[in-house]
Simulated assay, not measured.
Amino acid sequence: MARGGINKAVVQKARTALLARGEHPSIDAVRIELGNTGSKTTIHRYLKELEATELARGKAPLGLSEQLANLVNQLAEQMQEEAQASVAEERAALARERLEHQSRLLQAQENIRQLVVQNTDLAEQLQASQEALQQERLQRQNAEVDNARLLQMQADQELRIGERDEQIRLLEGNHQHARDALEHFRQASKEQREQEQRRHEAQVQQMQIELRTLQQSLVVRQDEITQLHRDNARLLAEAQQQRKEWMTQQRQLEERERTLADSQQVLVRAEQDNGVLQERCNALRAEANRLGEKLTAQEQHVRGLLERLAEANTQLKSVGHVPPKHEGEASQS
């Protein structure tokens, strides 16, 4: 059988066209006439067969039955070659589709493997996120405990500050009472000023010493109050910083949960694509079965043509003419 669909009838048609144009039907000329297709060896063999046939016709004219038998043989050979070429093309197309299907199946399996790896990675990331979340929750609980402790310390300090303010007010009241008592004492002892001047001056000095002591105590307590206010401000700043860190960790946790949700959606879409590829695989298998059935039908058709050819030969034999054996029949026998 000639490659690329080249057969004896096609070569004969190209040779006849060249002769009609007055050109010599060489191998290269016939191949160019066929569109630069076909093997030169096959074309040379067909040209020799055609020349031998023409020489045989030139020596002895053939009868109508012999011409009819040759025509039937040529048609049968052409139909058989065309059927074989069609079957070969169908088989080649089926093989290409099978290779394409296998390539798609391998690609789908690779995609599934990658998705499985991604799913494993996402599961590990989810486990790590959950552990980090648990750790962050523990840290948040510890921060809340520390915050409550700091608030309690702040409340205690405010209570102590209030107590110290009350002590300061009492000291100021005592100081005022001392001043009032001094003034009263001055008014009461005005008549005896000269007699008790020394005792009075001693008492005044003592009171001034007590006053300076009270003022120094007041300054110390004011310094302690200022320090307490500073400590309170520092504790409030630390509490605010911890609250900011907790809010940042909460946002990171929400972002990780959203990332996990997106990864789960990607996995669902991959499973859907796998289902579509499986349906395509089933469709390709059905198409392969259909092509097999078509090939079987074409083979049955060829066998029918051969049977018809045998019946035609039998009829020719019955009318007293034995057709010469064709090259195709000789190869079949």
Rank of each mutant, 00 (worst) to 15 (best):
237 A>Y: 13
106 L>S: 15
331 S>Y: 12
270 A>F: 00
199 R>I: 06
190 K>W: 12
258 R>S: 03
270 A>C: 00
274 N>L: 10
158 E>Q: 14
224 E>T: 05
52 A>F: 01
98 R>I: 09
190 K>F: 04
317 K>F: 05
185 F>I: 06
129 S>I: 07
287 E>C: 00
245 E>R: 14
274 N>V: 07
26 S>M: 06
199 R>Q: 13
7 N>D: 00
46 Y>C: 01
182 L>R: 08
114 Q>D: 03
275 G>N: 12
290 R>V: 03
226 T>Q: 03
102 Q>T: 06
314 T>E: 14
58 G>M: 11
122 L>S: 15
92 A>T: 03
129 S>K: 05
85 A>Q: 04
100 E>L: 00
149 R>Y: 06
255 E>R: 11
259 T>I: 08
133 L>Q: 14
5 G>E: 02
171 L>G: 02
155 A>S: 04
135 Q>N: 13
141 Q>W: 03
247 M>E: 15
153 M>A: 01
200 H>A: 10
80 Q>G: 11
171 L>N: 08
15 R>V: 09
191 E>S: 13
4 G>W: 07
130 Q>M: 08
90 E>L: 11
283 A>P: 05
49 E>I: 04
333 S>R: 14
102 Q>C: 11
22 G>W: 00
24 H>I: 07
122 L>D: 01
309 L>P: 04
280 R>F: 01
181 A>P: 04
271 E>I: 01
175 H>Y: 08
1 M>N: 10
93 A>V: 00
207 M>I: 09
330 A>V: 08
107 Q>P: 09
235 L>Y: 03
304 G>I: 02
179 R>W: 07
191 E>H: 14
318 S>I: 05
67 Q>Y: 02
24 H>Q: 13
287 E>D: 15
278 Q>I: 04
320 G>M: 00
279 E>C: 04
146 D>S: 12
118 Q>P: 05
283 A>D: 12
130 Q>P: 03
61 P>W: 03
211 L>C: 13
316 L>F: 00
190 K>I: 11
104 R>V: 00
51 E>K: 14
111 N>H: 13
189 S>A: 11
206 Q>E: 14
243 R>I: 07
112 I>K: 12
79 M>A: 14
48 K>E: 12
248 T>F: 08
209 I>T: 14
45 R>K: 09
269 R>T: 09
30 V>G: 01
218 L>M: 03
260 L>V: 06
146 D>H: 10
170 L>W: 04
44 H>Q: 09
51 E>D: 11
214 L>T: 10
237 A>W: 11
31 R>I: 02
306 L>D: 08
215 Q>E: 14
168 I>P: 07
162 G>S: 15
179 R>E: 10
87 V>I: 08
2 A>S: 14
42 T>G: 05
190 K>P: 06
125 Q>R: 02
332 Q>E: 01
283 A>V: 02
156 D>P: 01
257 E>F: 05
169 R>S: 08
28 D>F: 05
190 K>C: 11
317 K>A: 12
100 E>N: 10
248 T>K: 11
117 V>M: 15
144 E>Y: 05
206 Q>A: 12
89 E>A: 00
192 Q>V: 06
229 H>N: 15
231 D>P: 03
149 R>L: 09
69 A>I: 00
193 R>I: 12
52 A>Q: 15
263 S>L: 07
131 E>H: 13
154 Q>H: 08
42 T>F: 10
275 G>M: 13
18 L>Y: 00
13 K>P: 05
